[in-house]
Amino acid sequence: MGSKQIFLVDDDVIFRTASSILLKQNLPDYGSVPFENGEEVCDALLALTQSKESLPELMFLDINMPVMNGWEVLEELKTALPKICQDIKIYILTSSIAPEDMNLSKTYDFINGYITKPLTTNDIDNIKEVLE
């Protein structure tokens, strides 16, 4: 795996598998790291900040997840790890098209975008521009 990492947070194993292949095809310099829920990714990020290892460039965050959902992750980041909010490009990647969710996402000014599933090469092309 390359040094640049993408955190992929989603409880759906099929989606994780499919999208990591899609990302590899379109962003070959990046390696994707899967997380099943919000708690796992928060623990990982916390560990990274303490170990001074490099943070991921990009994070895709699902909303509907067991144990700790996407919103709870964002709240945690905002209060506990505000620096990360600036350093990582965060995208919400969800199947929810509910207006309530879209509106709620706008209240977090540090996130870079709201993508509705399925993830497409088009979406990845747009993200590429932001990364460069």
Binding site: I14, S95, T116, P118, L119, T120
Partner: peptide, 26 residues
């Protein structure tokens, strides 16, 4: 309705995503 649509969408979007990727070189 919200959550059902989520569940329906997550599965249907998976299918469409996977089907689309079948065309690429795998």
């Amino acid at each position: 309705t919200n959550i059902v649509s989520h569940n329906l969408r997550s599965n249907s979007s998976n299918i469409s995503m996977l089907a689309g990727m079948l065309d690429t070189d795998l």
